[in-house]
Amino acid sequence: MAYIPPSQQRNMRACMVCSIVRTNAQFLQSGCPNCEPFLELTGNPDAIADCTSQVFEGLLTVSDTSRSWVARYQRLEGYVPGVYAIQVEGVLPDDIVVAAENAGVHYIPRDGSVSEALPTDG
């Protein structure tokens, strides 16, 4: 499911909320496995265009989102195993952000615009 053959890799898109990477067709067919409740991407090309991004960087495959530190650092805890992007460019429309917040998901842009690291004491 998560595997995308090289021929399809040019159609990959990343969800701006959870950063999962799938092809356009996959999003259209089954939506985002993590964010579907509020993004409602299935069968909705416009929503896919708004909420997913073709511009992302760093491909990450996770087999266990709870044990992996990488997943934790990427705030992927509790998400399904699969392929994620490390950095996703794009701006989520405001109404979607509101929808996400209402759904109890705190949206943090994944485009590197927010500095996430704590000031470390060493």
């Binding site: 990450l60 266990d64 195993p81």
Partner: peptide, 21 residues
């Protein structure tokens, strides 16, 4: 990883990633 999981094998690798450019 999928194959391993399907086969019920222990994977032992939690994630793999690349940093492209």
């Amino acid at each position: 990883i999928d194959d391993y999981a399907r086969a019920g094998r222990q994977i032992g690798v939690y994630s793999a990633f690349e940093r492209g450019g």
